[in-house]
Amino acid sequence: MIYTLCFLLFTIGLYGVTCKKNIVKIILGLLIMEYSINLFLILLGWRKNGIAPIIDQSMSHEVFVFQAVDPLPQALVLTSIVIGLGVLSLMVAISIRLYQRYGTFDITEMNKLKR
């Protein structure tokens, strides 16, 4: 059920990217897509009443294996957040430059390329 909501969020982001004409809204759509996937990945590793995946001396291995959440998706999400940061900063920089050139955020008015 909760996975379905992630997909709903993903499709909302996709709608924003494909149907909106404002550059800022497109960027927001891309971000929503990105974060819906991050949420999905985190939920894959989630378990009810789980503990942080850090083992210390007082804890037996059985307890750790049966209670700790899956640490791998967390690492993946961290990596994908960093990648998203790189893409986002580049996107914002390009859109600022585009605004400098065209004086607008509307993509339908940016038509200097040949059609």
Partner: peptide
């Protein structure tokens, strides 16, 4: 100039 992008993980 154009910004550097965060590449580290």
């Amino acid at each position: 100039e154009t910004p550097e992008k965060g590449k580290s993980r």
